[in-house]
């Protein structure tokens, strides 16, 4: 039994993703120079989330995996969101 059946991602796809990641990094640095107040953190997090989406989907081949892997990833992220959300709900609204 060999592993041959899985999808081979062409070099070009990876290079395009890498260029996109570099552009998004430049946008993050540029966005940080503009004073948006509390919004700055959310812009930074939004761009970081977009970048990690690209890394997970293409570099880590999640796009080509079976639904089992995608469901597991979404579950882990949901747990992380609950973990962060519940903590912040407590901390931010503590009087």
């Amino acid at each position: 039994m060999t592993q041959d059946h899985a999808h081979i991602v062409p070099y070009r796809t990876f290079i395009i993703v890498w260029i996109a990641l570099l552009i998004l990094t430049a946008i993050t640095v540029a966005a940080a120079q503009v004073n948006l107040g509390a919004l700055n953190v959310w812009v930074a997090l939004g761009i970081a989330t977009l970048k990690s989406g690209l890394v997970v989907a293409i570099f880590m081949h999640m796009k080509y995996e079976s639904p089992l892997f995608k469901i597991a990833l979404l579950s882990a992220l949901a747990i992380l969101a609950i973990f962060i959300g519940m903590t912040l709900l407590d901390v931010l609204y503590r009087s």
Partner: peptide
């Protein structure tokens, strides 16, 4: 790499 993608803006780029 993924973790650094979050560390970089949160630690190095909070200018305002």
């Amino acid at each position: 790499d993924l973790i650094w993608i979050f560390i970089f803006p949160l630690y190095y780029l909070i200018l305002h």
